[in-house]
């Protein structure tokens, strides 16, 4: 079966800026796929290339095996949930949701029934007659989702779908989106700069930097085995160890990632467990974060960050020994 979305060496330039630079990517049918990267990394342009708002300058894009070069957005079987929702202010909620069906010439009673179902699916049953201006951010988000899904797209594109929502609502919507995707089985492609969101929602993640994909993999892959220093740093936080430091602590002599939560504080005089590497240092920063406490320890060579239980009695200025399983050191590629 052909992939839901296939990018073959796709580039898109804006003047001298290579917004998307030689991207190749296969998104499989039914995947919940995240395009993750900092702003300006090309992830949104990729989404717009799938939607058809942009055309590639080079390369080739297929949607379910069909080439989409020269196919305008209104003839693509994909729908988008826009970042600021783009709900039409001159239509009611029901008319917004039924818009795509109205354009297709679906009979009024049929499209109204479908819009009603779609709104019920996003838990906004009975909101048909409301004006969009009367809705809260979370409700607008749901209307935008219903408006896209009612058309039965083959691929649903979501541009920073949860960016404008507050934390609690965002967590709730993450779960709802995920269960919606599972029950509908539609391919979801979403753009985000929030690595937590990407890791918690997606089956697979593509990480963008400067218009290029630097790593594609499952959330576990990209978190546990970052391919480069950029990924290690961008996805979660990480101690990036230079080759010589890694080598002197029984790692491989290459740039190495060490996650803060893998580092433990060993009490004075206690033996270092076997299979662990260790280093001595001085706590320079201690920051309470609720669930954990994060300490920065200045060692002879470099500062290390460790996440330790919040119940710690350590204080700034304490001398400590840090230890971590040697397996927690992940060698990465040379690229920055």
């Amino acid at each position: 079966m052909s992939p839901a979305v296939r990018f073959q060496n796709v580039s898109r330039h804006f003047g001298s800026v290579r917004a998307v630079d030689g991207v190749s990517l296969d998104i499989e049918p039914g995947e919940f796929f995240a395009l993750l990267g900092p702003s300006g990394s090309g992830k949104t342009t990729c989404l717009r290339l799938i939607a058809g708002f942009e055309q590639p300058d080079e390369g080739h894009i297929e949607i379910f095996g069909e080439t989409v070069e020269g196919v305008p957005p209104y003839r693509r079987n994909v729908n988008t949930v826009f970042q600021d929702y783009a709900l039409f202010p001159h239509m009611t909620v029901g008319e917004n949701v039924a818009y795509g069906l109205m354009i297709k010439g679906v009979e009024k009673s049929v499209r109204e029934a479908k819009a009603k179902d779609a709104l019920a699916m996003v838990k906004l049953g009975g909101y048909e007659g409301r004006r969009t201006a009367q809705l809260s951010g979370g409700q607008r988000q749901r209307v935008a989702l219903a408006r896209a899904l009612v058309n039965g797209p083959k691929v649903l594109l979501l541009d920073e779908p949860l960016g404008a929502l507050d934390l609690k609502l965002r967590e709730q919507m993450q779960e709802e989106l995920k269960s919606l995707q599972t029950s509908l089985g539609i391919t979801f492609v979403f753009v985000t700069h929030d690595q937590g969101e990407a890791l918690s929602m997606a089956n697979r993640v593509a990480i963008f930097s400067d218009g290029k994909i630097v790593q594609v993999g499952t959330p576990t892959d990209v978190y546990e085995r970052p391919a480069s220093r950029f990924v290690a740093d961008f996805v979660g936080s990480s101690n990036v160890l230079p080759p010589e430091f890694a080598a002197s602590h029984s790692g491989t002599p290459s740039w190495t990632s060490l996650r803060p939560e893998r580092i433990e504080v060993v009490s004075d005089g206690a033996a270092i467990p076997s299979g662990y590497a260790s280093v001595k240092g001085l706590i320079s920063v201690i920051s309470y974060q609720g669930a954990v406490t994060r300490i920065t320890v200045v060692t002879e060579k470099l500062p290390l960050i460790a996440s330790i239980p919040a119940t710690t009695s350590l204080r700034k200025g304490d001398h400590v020994t840090l230890a971590w399983p040697k397996a927690a050191m992940v060698a990465m590629g040379e690229s920055a």
Binding site: F53, Y74, V78, F82, A86, I103, A148
Partner: peptide, 22 residues
């Protein structure tokens, strides 16, 4: 906003329909 026009196209409206309805 431009994204109203994009949203309309995204939902299947050709430029003429977008003009009339949005």
């Amino acid at each position: 906003p431009t994204n109203f026009i994009e949203a309309s196209a995204d939902l299947g409206a050709d430029p003429g329909q977008t003009f009339r309805t949005v």
